[in-house]
Design a protein around this nucleic acid. Sequence first.
DNA 1: CAAGCGTGGGT
DNA 2: TACCCAAGCTT
Length: 290
Amino acid sequence: MTQHPLASRVNAWYRENARDLPWRREGFGAWGILVSEFMLQQTPVVRVIPRLERWLKRWPTPGDLAAEPPGEAVREWANLGYPRRALWLHRAAEQITEIHAGTVPSEVDDLLSLTGVGDYTARAVAVFAWGARHPVVDTNTRRVIARAVHGSGEPAPPSATRDLADMSALLPYDDGEARVFNAAAMELGAVICTARAPRCAECPIRLQCRWFAEGRPAYTGPRKPVQKRYEGSDRHVRGLIMAELRASDVPVTSAEIGRVWSDDDRRDRALAGLLADGLAVARDGGYALP
DNA sequence: CAAGCGTGGGT
DNA sequence: TACCCAAGCTT
């Protein structure tokens, strides 16, 4: 079968070396894959695995999750970070239950209309859960393409049009091979072609890689915007307050919240933000999960 | 479209 | 120690 030589090599490598991850098991199910994709948005694999298994044991179907208050999703989300994702996943479960009769949709457009599902997640679910042939481009794939195809040590800022075109040019024609390649490109970026210290000596495509061939030149393009300091930030204080709310079965009092951070302005701003985001609600004179 | 959003581990 | 990074999304 004719396919891009990069795809052939990466797929062959993947078949031998892929990690045994829960969502790759046969028959894992579309709901499980959707949940895994939500959890994997900006959270590392090793932290997701135990939480995912708990989640699916508790809520085996979208309807099971939709039947509970959103705060239970936030509590079960625990310390995965970005708890808005738990709220969005709960909302998506409601939408799947009400609009799609409890079945995770298979069309990219239907998936995109779910809360918290963007371009990456919609394609990932269509491909990995339902076997459709689409390009799936995540941060790992973008880095692999930047190096192997463009000879750049780091990818340019994301551009859906260009990223999808790049991946489409490599994507095998066969649905099954395309599905494997989508997973394999991510896997290669995750374990070999890493951001920090790529293991080029172990890379199955180093001899086809433009960046390697050119001597791994240092990246000179635009730097990613520097992330603001976390310690003492609004995000930090929001996280501390959320940890309190998750840990308590009863509403948390203002006095208790006052103890998580001494700066009144920052603490009030964080709490107001959580209320506005729907991650916290006022209840019985205190604050609780929704 | 740039900014904002948690948390923890690696270097 | 600081900083970087992790299967992104919404506003």
